[in-house]
Design a protein around this nucleic acid. Structure first.
Length: 197
DNA sequence: CTCTCGATGCGCT
DNA sequence: GCGCATCGAGAGA
């Protein structure tokens, strides 16, 4: 299957977020391939977005967000979880798309083992859950999704406009505009989305 | 089903 | 010190 090319990621963050729906996130760990269909994402655009980790400019932690597009930005949160993002826009911009939920497609037994025997939608219906299911952690921060051999995204059929839902992002606090802006995208009615509404 | 709360590391002020 | 782009257990309805 074809991987999404660099040019896919080097676009407006909202367009990348919307177009990531339906695409296949692939992880190869210890020679085993695991994959899921992206069913829920959120856009974070540093320049104008107080909720983005890039809002206050580059630091050691968020360096990947300011690097070239098509790489992973992975951060550690709440002292125990990881979240996976895709870097967007031209290098230096500081924006990314958080992948929030996957519909498991390949290697489901392996996901189940890493998720303590859980099944179905519980395997990857949340940003930290999918990182456990796909064995994603900070060692993959900065990984190249276009040229790399451990993590990438393959082209699938686009989700039609009438199946794309949007709304406010989950877990964002503080600045009122950032709390309300509808930069969360998901596939309408898909049972693997973290939460409806 | 819904709600509350504790866990736990670390970057930022 | 504070607070975080979260999760899962436990309680109650």
């Amino acid at each position: 299957m074809d991987r999404l090319p660099r040019a896919f990621y080097r676009r407006d963050t909202l367009a990348v977020a919307r177009d990531l729906l339906g695409q296949r996130l692939v992880r190869v760990s210890k020679g085993v391939r695991v994959a899921g269909r992206i069913v829920e994402v959120e856009a974070y655009d540093g320049a104008r977005d107080s909720a983005s980790h890039a809002h206050r400019g580059p630091t050691e932690r968020n360096a990947s967000m300011f690097g070239p597009p098509g790489h992973a930005y992975i951060y550690f949160i709440y002292g125990m979880h990881h979240c996976f993002n895709v870097v967007t826009e031209p290098e230096g911009h500081g924006a990314a798309v958080l992948v929030r939920s996957l519909e498991p497609v390949e290697g489901i037994e392996g996901m189940r083992a890493r998720r303590g025997g859980r099944e179905g939608r519980a395997l990857a219906n949340g940003p930290a859950k999918l990182c456990y299911a796909l064995a994603i952690d900070r060692t993959l921060d900065g990984a190249d999704l276009v040229e790399g051999e451990v993590l990438w995204i393959e082209r699938e059929e686009a989700v039609p406009e009438e199946r794309v839902a949007r709304g406010p992002r989950v877990g964002v606090r503080g600045d009122e505009w950032a709390v309300r802006v509808p930069w969360r995208f998901w596939i309408e009615g898909n049972p693997y989305v973290s939460k409806e509404s």
